[in-house]
Design a protein around this nucleic acid. Structure first.
Lengths: 130, 130
DNA sequence: GATAGGGGTTCCAGTAAGTGGAGGGTCAAG
DNA sequence: CTTGACCCTCCACTTACTGGAACCCCTATC
């Protein structure tokens, strides 16, 4: 299977697939013309990667997960531990963003948003917070 | 005022302050020995930047906000519009992360997390989703 | 006067995860 | 035989810094 085909099936851009080969996440064979020749195995791995990335796992997480995916003797605890750590990071990120959102929406609410220069948003940003 | 001093007062790392000069966000004078000499004005700008960045504004947003901050004849509507757009992006990000969190925590819940290889997390990641 | 420390300076390289483009080879159809 | 859709490699760029090397400046101490 050629890269364009795999791209369609996996939903990953061609460029991304080449990049994943570059960093060693997949290792397709090559045809005599130099074209990448993907097997089912690689297609599955790429779909796996796409899904894992869409859940926000880092590439290094993906690498570890893929190794576990390949390893028939894995312990599910190892997978769960990676997922749990990632979940915590997501929750931390959400909290941070929610704090930003709350502050910002409060400031926006205060701002008249007209032709006048007075602006609580700028006033807040310009104030020292210690 | 030297850079270390400004760093302490603004809370920004020295490296970051130099970087902000590099990209034209602040323009401190120079002493005869080549040291940056910051005035009150720059200190305020740097504090402004730190605060704006902590609310998640991009550097380019900060550049625009700083220009409005400097402009006594600004319209608060311009500030509000930047802030509103940013707020929307934050909300989009939060939604995305919440979706990840929900999927992931569901999968984690399903996974036994023991020595056995069976793992709903890997199973889900490996499945094609169309 | 030499030296040690704690400032400061510049410039180069690297981070995460791709994306865009240049320049060029390959293949099937008309 | 040419056209258009593929494919290839390699390089540069993105965001917002961060780390490090190599070097200068200032003050205090031996």
């Amino acid at each position: 299977m050629n890269i364009g085909n795999v791209s369609n099936l996996s939903g990953l851009p061609v460029k991304t697939i080449r990049y994943y080969e570059d960093i060693g996440l997949v290792s397709p064979l090559r045809d005599s013309n130099g074209y990448r020749a993907f097997r089912e195995k690689e297609l599955h791995k790429l779909a796996f990667l796409g899904r894992a990335r869409s859940l926000g796992f880092t590439i290094e997480d993906c690498r570890a997960l893929l190794a576990l995916y390949d390893d028939e003797t894995r312990a599910s605890a190892d997978v769960k531990s990676i997922a749990n750590e990632h979940l915590e990071q997501i929750e931390t990120k959400i909290s941070g963003l929610e704090a930003m959102r709350d502050t910002l929406s409060h400031l926006i609410h205060e701002c008249a948003g007209d032709h006048r220069p007075d602006c609580p948003i700028l006033k807040d940003l310009g104030a020292f917070k210690n």
